[in-house]
Amino acid sequence: MADSNRAEPLPGLLDGLTADARGWLDRARADGDLPVLFPQLPRRLGRIAMGGGVQRHSGATLDLGAWRTCDGGALLLLETRTPSADELVDLYLRGDLEERTMVLRALACLPLGSATATLLGEVQRSNTVPHFAAAVCDSDLLIRARDAGVLDADDANRMLLKLAFVDLPLARVFDATRLANTELSRMLQDLASEREAAGRRVWRDTNLLIAHAPTAGTLARIAGGLEHGDDAHRIAAARGAAHIADPVLLRLARERLDREPSAAVRTELAAALRAAERTP
């Protein structure tokens, strides 16, 4: 686990705390039973948005826009007290909704290992969207866990399929397109077809992610996406078309550009066409 002597607070954390809160955190880092301290974090440190944008911390890249003061305090406590994998999993399993959120958000900055795999497995089984988002979104945890072999390809595919199922934006999972593969594309396309048959909404980023690993049916889906009634779907399709650079898709994108009513989508289509022209 982390070297507790070198545990550093996230940028801006201490500035956002009152003197009482800082004093409590100092004492908690030094002493006390972690399962008793952990539920107190939101009460003691508050749930104030930290802000600060994308940062590097403990080998991870994370967006502090998603973090609150209690999350930052939880991470500092965990990096200082260095609980074992079993203790960390116990904090999650016996935690209330807030405690679970704090453990999962901190996970990105804690050493990759068995607790990472166990806790990602737990959120995968749960449909609690805030917990899934706290674990998988706003950091590069998923790609690092896959690169380190903590997750295998099937695990990563299931997590990205769940991301689509609970309708969270692909952009919140850093470097997620590196995890694209044809099996995942098939899974996403099947989910989209099932949703369409049921008259339900399809994940807006489907056409972007499948473009990174095309399989049977991918081109037709993206072509359809260029004419979708929802702006977000057309943007994803335009980006997908730019990535694949297939001549038919580019011709359809050019046709769409002249008729496209949304300025945001026109920008994406124009960018897709410029990128294709630069491609040898």
Binding site: P35, L37, F38
Partner: peptide
């Protein structure tokens, strides 16, 4: 009990 007595609700 001690850990449960500190839960928010």
């Amino acid at each position: 009990l001690p850990r449960y007595l500190e839960k928010d609700s």
